[in-house]
Write a protein that binds this DNA or RNA. Structure first.
Length: 281
DNA sequence: CTCCTGTCCTGCCGGC
DNA sequence: TGCCGGCAGGACAGGA
């Protein structure tokens, strides 16, 4: 369930560990992920030096000095493990792609559920790649604010929760942070998206930014099988206000105290939504 | 266009 | 104890 914050943490860890590093080889142990990995990916990256990393929505991009590069999506169970030079590599089940670095280190992509994928994309044309062509604004950039969000929601009859999950509305928000942001903003997940306008849209935009920024600050978060891209084991059990807290007490957020009622779980378009029907209207 | 549902995949967990 | 069904969910295809 890596969403924007987790992907940002992975990107930062990769930057620290591998920016300027040489790729000596790429092993495709299992190329049939969500989409097949291009068979010529190892040939294109072999011998190249990594010149930049980028995050867009829930995707990490990596470019090399030739101008080639690749995009990585972690799906819902994808993990990047960085193994420093000199440290032993203990292969794990689902280590689908292994980057052999020139200094002897390794970068491993492990993804049990194989919802993730890697694809080739160049530094000059990544923005027109199919995943990004219609992608909405980066929530933590200046391109995202109340009026921008309001415009994206205008005319949409679908519930606001569903709209937030639409990557064309805003990039990088998944099920967890959609629930959290709506709670923080005090907006019911069941309201029609088109009715979230003006001050409501402003408040929701602020909440989206805040919930994502807080999660990045605390090192990314996820419920299960996520471990830090720097190789350290363990996952970051974030302190969620509503997500996965069905039946527990509403304890509020920040200045807004909890109402003492019980957090509910409802299902919207086949996905769990967690909310407080008293605090969210 | 928007909306909604089904699909992919594996590991985990609850129930019997 | 072991099996089995249900669930988790991001992105996308396809139908309404």
């Amino acid at each position: 369930m890596p969403e924007l914050p987790e992907v940002e943490i992975v990107k930062r860890a990769l930057e620290t560990a591998a920016l300027g590093a040489g790729i000596s080889d790429v092993r495709l142990n299992r190329p049939d992920l969500r989409f097949p990995i291009p068979p010529d990916l190892p040939d294109i990256l072999r011998g190249q030096v990594i010149s930049s990393f980028l995050r867009r929505g829930k995707y990490v991009l990596c470019f090399v000095e030739s101008g080639a590069g690749f995009v990585l999506h972690l799906g819902m169970s994808g993990v990047v493990k960085i193994i420093p030079a000199g440290e032993a590599y203990v292969p794990r089940k689902h280590d689908h792609v292994v980057f052999m670095m020139a200094d002897g280190g390794m970068i491993v992509f492990n993804d049990p559920r194989r919802f993730g994928f890697l694809d080739l994309v160049g530094v000059e044309d990544w923005a027109t790649y199919k995943s990004f062509a219609a992608m909405g604004p980066e929530p933590l950039s200046n391109d995202f604010n109340g009026p921008v969000l309001a415009a994206a929601l205008a005319g949409r009859k679908a519930p606001i929760k569903a709209a937030l999950l639409d990557q064309k509305v805003v990039a990088g928000v998944g099920n967890i942070y959609a629930c959290e942001a709506l709670y923080m903003a005090g907006i019911s997940p069941q309201r029609a998206a088109r009715d979230v306008q003006g001050a409501d849209a402003e408040g929701l935009a602020v909440a989206v930014r805040e919930v994502l920024a807080l999660a990045i600050e605390s090192g990314g978060s996820s419920l299960k099988d996520y471990y830090h891209a720097d190789g350290s084991l363990g996952y970051f059990q974030h302190h969620f206000s509503v997500y996965d807290r069905a039946g527990e007490v509403c304890r509020g957020h920040g200045a807004r105290g909890g109402c003492g009622k019980v957090i509910e779980r409802i299902v919207q378009s086949g996905r769990s939504t967690f909310c407080c029907s008293s605090c969210q209207r």
